[in-house]
Structures are given as C-alpha cells and as structure tokens.
Design a protein around this nucleic acid. Sequence first.
DNA 1: CTTCCGTTTGGCAGCTACTCTCAGATTAAG
DNA 2: CTTAATCTGAGAGTAGCTGCCAAACGGAAG
Lengths: 191, 191
Amino acid sequence: MPGLRERNKARTRAEIRRQAMRLFRDQGYASTTVEQIAAAAEVSQSTFFRYFPSKEDVVLRDELDPLVFDAFVAAPPELTPIQAFRAAVRAVVQGLSAEQQAEEWERHRLTQSVPELRARNLDALTQGMGLFTQAVAQRVGRRPDDVAVRAFVGALVGVGLAVLLDEDPGPTGYLELFDAGLAQLEAGLPL
Amino acid sequence: MPGLRERNKARTRAEIRRQAMRLFRDQGYASTTVEQIAAAAEVSQSTFFRYFPSKEDVVLRDELDPLVFDAFVAAPPELTPIQAFRAAVRAVVQGLSAEQQAEEWERHRLTQSVPELRARNLDALTQGMGLFTQAVAQRVGRRPDDVAVRAFVGALVGVGLAVLLDEDPGPTGYLELFDAGLAQLEAGLPL
DNA sequence: CTTCCGTTTGGCAGCTACTCTCAGATTAAG
DNA sequence: CTTAATCTGAGAGTAGCTGCCAAACGGAAG
C-alpha cells in the first residue's frame, strides 16, 4: 500500500501534466511559461523542475514504448520478428481506453508540431533501437552486432517512422498504415 | 564578382564557426557560452545570432545532404534506388578533401555526443525524407504517397540510421558498414 | 501525543540562450 | 559628395534551468 507521501507525489505529478497540457492546448506550447504551469498546478517553479527535468519532458515522457517492448519480448517465439512486433503494437494500442487513446493522440500531435519536441522524441526512439536490437537478435538466434540484425531493426524502425511522420490519417488510420508498411517489409520491400 | 560586403559576411561567418568549433573541442559544447564564441570571433552577441539562429546551428548546418540528394537525382535512371543511393553517398564522401573529411568527422562526433544536437540532427534527417520520397517515386514511376514507396524510403533511411548510430567504426569504416546494410536491404532483409 | 529524522517544498539569486529595439557605422549607388 | 540601404554594437528584457537554504510535512519510535 502506497503511503500518503507517494500518493501526494503521484497526484502532484499528474496535476502538473494535466494543467500543462491544458495550457498548451489553449495558448500553445511556446507561449506557455513554466511559471504559468506551476501556478495553475499550485506548486512552485522549483517543484515543477523536481518532477520534470525540463518543460519538454512534461509532454515527452512516454510509457507506451516500454509496454510495446515487453509485449514484443513476451510474444510467442515461433513468430517472426515482424509478426511479433505487429502483434505487440496492436495489443498495446488496443489495450488503451478510449480516453487514453485520445490523450495519446493529442500528445502525438503536439509532439509533431513543435520542432524541439519532435526532435527529442526522435532521439528517444533511435536511442531505444539498441535495446530492441538485442531483443530481435535473441529472437532469431543471432548476435546483436550482426549487420543483418542491425539493418533489419533499422529498416523496421524506419518503416514505423515513415508512418508516424505522415500527417493525420486519423487516430485509427495509423494502425492500418503501419500494417501495410510492415507487410511491405515482410515482402522484402518490392518496388 | 561578390562585393566587399558579401566577402566580409562570408569571412565573419566562417570565423564564428571556426572559433566555435575550436572552443567546443577544447572545453566542451555545454560549457562554452555564446559570449565566449562571440568574443573569440571578435563580434558582438547580436552579430552571432544574426549569422546563426541558435548555438546549435553553428554545428548542425549541413551542406552534405543536399549534395547527396542532387547526386541521387542525377544518377543514371537504370540504377535501382538502392544502387543510386549508394553511388550518391560514395561520390559525395569521396569527393571531399582529407581536411573536409576530418572536419565532417569531428562534426559528426560532436553531434552524436550532445543530446540536443543529436536530436535536432535526427529531426532534420527525417524532415528530409519527404523530398527523398518524391525523388524515389519519380525514379521508379510510382506515386509519392504509395505505401510501398514510403515504406521503402523509411527502411532505407532506417538502415542509414542504424549505421550512423554505431559508435566509432572509424571515419572509413562507416562506408563499408553502410554498404553491408544496403546489401541486406537489397536482399530483402533476410534474417 | 510528542519527538525526532528524513523528505519535500518554496523562495531567492544567478546563469545563459535568445529577442527586440535603437543609434551609429559602413558599404553601395546616384 | 550625398543619399539610401545594410550591417553592427549595446542595452534591456524574457524564459528555461540550477543551486542553496530555511521552513513545512510525513512517517516511525518512544
């Protein structure tokens, strides 16, 4: 059972995020100051930066990627990496409530529209490739530094990237696009 | 013939870059202030920001990508996109003087080691994918919004990414790694 | 309930990237 | 030489972010 302290922390954290997203939505990311967010969440600036190392991190902290990763690792071994990845993404997305999906959608739109956020998001994505490469290597029984494995993971991430960079196919359309991209990859990227 | 004004501007710009890179090398990116760079280049801070919109841009402005793109477009039409891309990269890299290669290498190392720079570099890369997609589409006679084309470009960029993210295979080793990755892609990413 | 310890918080000072404005200098053109 | 356009320097101001210290708070022991 979490003590009062931990509950307060979680509440404060959530409140800061909530107020921040609301202000970003209303008056834009750039023209919202940390001072405003802190005031709206009724904490001091010091406290804001204790919960989030930077203004960007209020938007960026992603808890979905680890879920997808875990689902990928836990997928049945007889699946090919592409099948396992598709299943993992699908399971995580469909496991979200409608409200969560809407939040994620807003988060994604904001991230894509603000250059700094977009950049840092991409960086997080590519930095995660290393871990993913290990998982893929283990799945197919190869070494992680094998060129074939690394190129494959790069291509897989690249396909995901190409889908994500597409502007608004709607919150649902992404999955279809993603599936189509993976199908192409599975077929050896014919042109 | 460029007037005195333009020559002065080019000289100032180059000097700012030179001094900045020197300071970054000596005392690190974060602990070098714009004030120091401006002082070393003998200009005011105002002037610094007139030449470079941000401290990051002193490092990031890349003139190689457009060259690769042009070379790709200009490549013989009978080449496959992968062959054309490989030829373009190779031509541009080998067209650099030893000094230029060393500079690029230093620039790349600095970019990869500083998170903000790495992130913005990735963003520039992915933002350029749109243009590249059009070129590929034209080359293979398909529409740019074709999923096959987009997935292909994504995979191609992804493979390049996987190579670039690898830490120091030496300034020459990159090309070999890159070729190996492209060969894998050409073979349909077998695992 | 009180006391005591460790954690959390707020307020403040300070640094730095970056913007805006304005006056003065420099270059180009008539 | 004079005039117009452009470039530069200086200063003030904003905002993100850090570090420091004292006060408030939560949790456990007596």
